[in-house]
Amino acid sequence: MVSLNSYLILGAILFSIGAVGVFTRRNVLIIYMCIELMLNAVNLTFLSFSKFLNDMNGHVFVFMIMTVAAAEAAVGLAIIISLFRNKATINVDDINLSKG
């Protein structure tokens, strides 16, 4: 039997890896993938608490997070495409439209 803490530790590790990616990478697409990874780590935490509290409400939360992640990916990638059309780059350091 795997303990609750092992699942939570796995979630924390995956979330931290995603955060490192968001901070150190400069490619917009890879930053997006790292955000997806962080969302997945949160899903894992929800599901493990759900299992150990024997409470199904966590599953509904994960369902909603998946919906939001799909919507976010669609809109975000559309934004990336229109940005690429205007600036011809996907390096976040070159995209500073609101810098003034």
């Binding site: 530790i9 979630g11 924390a12 590790i13 931290s16 955060a19 509290l53």
Partner: peptide, 24 residues
């Protein structure tokens, strides 16, 4: 990020469930 991450992992190690919250 490593500092915050190790904080997360410590929290995950210490987390415990209150048995009265477990549903039937």
């Amino acid at each position: 990020v490593a500092i915050v991450g190790s904080l997360f992992i410590t929290m995950a190690t210490l987390a415990e469930i209150d048995p009265s919250l477990i549903k039937a």
